[in-house]
Design a binder for these strands. Structure first.
Length: 589
DNA sequence: ACGGTTATTC
């Protein structure tokens, strides 16, 4: 180690000494050495010179040190902090658990008469993102324009991300449109913005538009990662395969994160064989790879195989993490593996020292509820260390509906009311519990309550991918260009299915508004469109954002037999593979 | 200096 306290005789060697001091600051990994350097800088007044104070402040504010209190102390010892000192502090706060303090430093900087540079604005914008302060972010946007920083690509990209994270997708797009120069990162932020704000179709469209002659920007590994997420959301395997090809063509296929994402994408599109193929080819599988594969089997209703993959993972000596157990437990719940689920829940805590979190409890509650142990599930929720969220109550409410536990259902909805999180779906579930118990008074009462609370239902959507193009349908939809054919085909299909013994159930839940009227659910429309638009025998793949109802489930089952079509419907959480009039799922219906 | 892998649910 260099002697920091030595005094050099000649100015020349003194200069050498100072240079090596700077490189020592930049390279040391020991906190004790930093403390020594600090003492030296103070003693020799070198701390007042930005040559030393800037790297020093940066070093302790950024990883691996990130000692925030210490940074603040150094910062206050600098008599005339310059813009870089301020930037370092803003950045440090932006990344800390007190992101809003970044804004205070920024404001203080301006009060001291120091003009922010694009980096200052970028860091403070980041602090607004982390602290989710919409108002301040908008203020900073105005400030950026006044400072004339409206053509800084980096800054504008951060600003886009701010609007994206604040749910202001249109504003983000506006910033993007007005950017004079767009690099790949800017395009990626646009994609991420579309995904974050549920404009998944637009996200996919970016892949082509960025590569077009007009823009000529090549997607990179991050673009692929984002687009694979979009494909998963839409169940768009065709598009996913395109991305897969692109990944191979550009030599990204050795990147672990991309491979993991591919496994997840194929799994979420119901293509388990493809997922497994990619998975097996991964040379150095990490926790994420294993978890993605387990989760793939789990969500496709193949709980036993999920457990087998976990056993293999154990043999390979890869330590599972909490997400691995979430995937495993959800596998058990989807496949109704009560004993296995309990045993994993126990081993997770005892053997792997994982403290159960809300996800784990959610799975176990779902598992117990599914097999009818609703009171046990209720007790489990009450015994939790963490605060029950609306989701977990909703899970139990769903189980109450299935098993017809009206009294417990009422207790559960009380908890939802307490959390102030009641949504349309919850009341519709409760309505169903009452109506199946024949308690019409309660039905009317609940309807009234919903009206008073102004609870609105949003129609759900189904998508189907044909030749790489995504078609979206909503309940009783009339917007699709070929909707007339679709409805004609619906009538035709229903006629055919009636011959096969299909009886339409009166629709009284989920989509629509809980009214006892018969309407075409979005998945039925998507299926009918699939039958219209593809040659006989083509596999139909539909993605739906809510859970499929029993009627549509029967419909798909019959359709797969009568029309001899393989049908895959992915609902909110899982897959239903229909073939020859049967479904692979062993759920309630 | 800006973007990013795996998880419970209606």
């Amino acid at each position: 180690m260099m002697q920091i306290s030595s005094h050099s005789p000649s100015p020349r060697s003194n200069q050498t000494h100072l240079n090596s001091l700077v490189s020592l600051i930049k390279s040391t990994t020991q906190t004790t050495q930093l403390l020594q350097i600090h003492a030296y800088l103070l003693r020799t007044s070198l701390l007042q010179e930005s040559t030393f104070s800037v790297p020093f402040l940066q070093r302790i504010s950024l990883p691996p040190f990130q000692i925030l209190n210490y940074s603040l102390q150094i910062f206050s010892q600098i008599l005339r902090p310059n813009v870089t000192h301020y930037n370092t502090m803003i950045r440090a706060y932006a990344m800390s658990i007190h992101p809003e303090r970044g804004f205070y430093v920024y404001r203080d900087m301006m009060r001291q008469g120091i003009r922010p540079n694009p980096q200052s604005s970028s860091f403070v914008t980041k602090s607004c993102i982390r602290g989710s302060s919409l108002f301040r972010g908008v203020q900073i946007h105005g400030r950026i324009l006044r400072d004339g920083h409206h053509s800084d690509t980096l800054l504008l990209t951060t600003l886009m991300d701010f609007y994206s994270c604040s749910g202001k997708c249109d504003n983000a797009c506006k910033v993007f449109d007005e950017m004079p120069l767009r690099d790949t990162v800017a395009w990626n932020v646009l994609v991420s913005c579309y995904i974050r704000n549920n404009r998944t179709l637009d996200a996919l469209a970016v892949f082509d538009s960025m590569q077009s002659g007009e823009h000529g920007c090549d997607p990179d590994d991050v673009t692929c990662l984002l687009l694979l997420q979009a494909c998963s959301n839409l169940c768009a395997v065709g598009f996913g395969e395109r991305i897969h090809e692109y990944i191979k063509d550009h030599g990204y296929h050795r990147a672990l994160n991309l491979c993991n994402s591919l496994v997840a994408m194929y799994s979420k599109c119901g293509q388990l064989d493809k997922a497994y193929e990619v998975f097996q080819k991964i040379a150095n599988k990490d926790v994420v790879s294993w978890t993605a594969m387990i989760s793939g089997f789990a969500s496709n209703g193949r709980g036993r195989e999920a457990i087998n993959v976990f056993r293999e993972m154990e043999r390979m000596g890869i330590p599972p993490d909490e997400q691995t157990f979430t995937a495993l437990l959800s596998g058990c719940s989807h496949s109704g593996l009560l004993d296995e689920g309990r045993s994993i829940f126990y081993r997770m805590q005892r053997e792997f020292g994982v403290v159960p979190n809300i996800h784990h409890y959610g799975c176990v509650v779902d598992l117990m509820g599914r097999v009818g142990l609703v009171e046990d599930a209720y007790d489990l929720i009450n015994s939790m260390r963490c605060k029950p969220d609306a989701t977990i109550w909703r899970t139990l409410l769903g189980a109450c509906k299935v098993h017809g536990h009206m009294e417990l259902g009422e207790r559960v909805i009380e908890h939802l009311i307490e959390l102030n999180a009641q949504e349309a779906g919850d009341y519709i579930l409760l309505l169903n519990i009452y109506s199946s118990a024949g308690n019409w008074e309660k039905v009317i009462e609940t309807r009234k309550l919903m009206k008073e609370k102004g609870i609105q239902t949003t129609p759900s959507a189904s998508t189907i991918e044909l030749k790489g193009e995504i078609h979206e349908f909503r309940v009783d939809d009339t917007s699709h260009p070929r909707i007339k054919e679709v409805y004609e085909m619906m009538d035709e299909i229903e006629k055919q299915l009636k011959i096969g013994g299909y009886v339409a159930e009166i629709t009284k839940e989920k989509e629509g508004n809980g009214l006892l009227s018969y309407s075409y659910h979005s998945e039925k429309l998507a299926l009918a469109f699939g039958v219209v638009a593809t040659p006989p025998g083509t596999k139909l793949r539909v993605a739906k954002d809510l859970r499929i109802c029993i009627d549509c489930h029967n419909f798909a089952k019959m359709l797969s037999g009568v029309y001899n079509r393989e049908v895959i419907i992915r609902d909110r959480t899982r897959f239903h593979h229909f073939r020859e009039g049967r479904c692979s799922c062993n759920d309630f219906w």
